[in-house]
């Protein structure tokens, strides 16, 4: 009974990691850049959701969509201003820029509105307690899982069934060849950032509703954890990010369940190290032999 409860705890936490991890993995897949500012897009999404619920008084679903739209725009802006000029620079330059952008967003945000936390109103969504095999499940955790799954299905549809999805796959496979085939690489990269950031924005709003407290530095740890999740599943592979996120959430819950709650964050990064040593391309990654 306690174990079921812990699994439920882990899956709700994991689905938030999974939503953020999807954005990491998409961006990496297409421009081979680890976008460290992604966790901060998540934070911006949480605040957009908060202000649209408390100031504009619009319902949850519309707030979610608004936060996704704002974050999509924000993601594209980041790409255009910070990363596009460095497209042909070394990868380390782009990586350092990403860290810089992340710090700029965090502290710029604190400068503008202050560092004090905000609390999401408690009545955004109705809360019920569902009893399942003796475990108490909050209806909100099911909703998180539901929203995550729906968004992931939409994402799969976009990537595999639409023209822009086809372009994305082509650019990630070989950007130069795609360009020769008449694909607008810049626009494809922008739309990748837009979709990834929209998912992070959605994760931000869900996080706010579920965990109530939001603050300007809230994106740092979930961002790093989502990065671990993306590597765990195999960076650049979409289903890998989902499975990696859920798995990481469950691992963390179980670590706490066995009484090592202070080791929880450590456990996530031990997972990262183990994966990098034994399965560098992740659970879903194919081992690619270096061509000579």
């Amino acid at each position: 009974m306690e174990l079921i409860q812990q699994l439920v705890n882990g899956i709700s936490l994991g689905s938030i990691y999974a939503l953020i991890a999807l954005g990491y993995t998409m961006v990496y897949g297409i421009v081979k850049l680890i976008n460290f500012a992604h966790g901060d897009v998540f934070m911006v999404g949480a605040f957009v959701g908060f202000y649209s619920i408390t100031v504009l008084h619009i319902p949850f679903v519309l707030s979610l969509i608004l936060a996704m739209a704002v974050c999509a725009l924000f993601g594209v802006l980041i790409e255009r201003i910070a990363y596009k000029p460095l497209r042909n620079a070394t990868r380390i330059a782009a990586l350092i820029t990403a860290i810089g952008v992340s710090l700029l967003i965090e502290y710029g945000f604190i400068y503008v509105r202050g560092a004090q936390p905000e609390a999401y109103p408690g009545d955004v969504l109705p809360e019920h307690v569902i009893h399942l095999f003796g475990a108490k499940i909050n209806s909100q955790s099911l909703l998180i899982l539901g929203v995550s799954v729906v968004l992931m299905i939409i994402l799969q549809f976009i990537v595999h069934k639409t023209k822009i999805g086809k372009a994305m796959r082509a650019v990630s496979f070989d950007a130069e060849a795609a360009q020769l085939m008449g694909i607008n690489v810049d626009r494809t990269i922008s739309s990748t950032f837009a979709i990834g950031s929209a998912l992070a924005g959605a994760a931000g709003v869900i996080f706010g509703v579920y965990y109530i407290k939001i603050e300007p530095l809230m994106g740092v740890i979930p961002g790093l954890k989502a990065f671990v999740a993306a590597v765990l599943g195999g960076i650049g592979i979409l289903p890998g990010a989902m499975v990696g996120g859920l798995l990481l959430g469950v691992i963390e819950s179980l670590v706490s369940a066995f009484g090592y709650s202070l080791w929880r964050d450590g456990a996530a990064f031990v997972v990262l190290i183990l994966i990098l040593i034994f399965l560098p391309s992740g659970l879903f990654g194919k081992y690619r032999r270096e061509k000579v």
């Binding site: 705890n9 709700s12 963390e252 670590v255 706490s256 709650s261």
Partner: peptide, 13 residues
Amino acid sequence: VAKDTDFRATLTR
């Protein structure tokens, strides 16, 4: 640890 947000696992224990 301060700044944690998810305590459900520990609370279940």
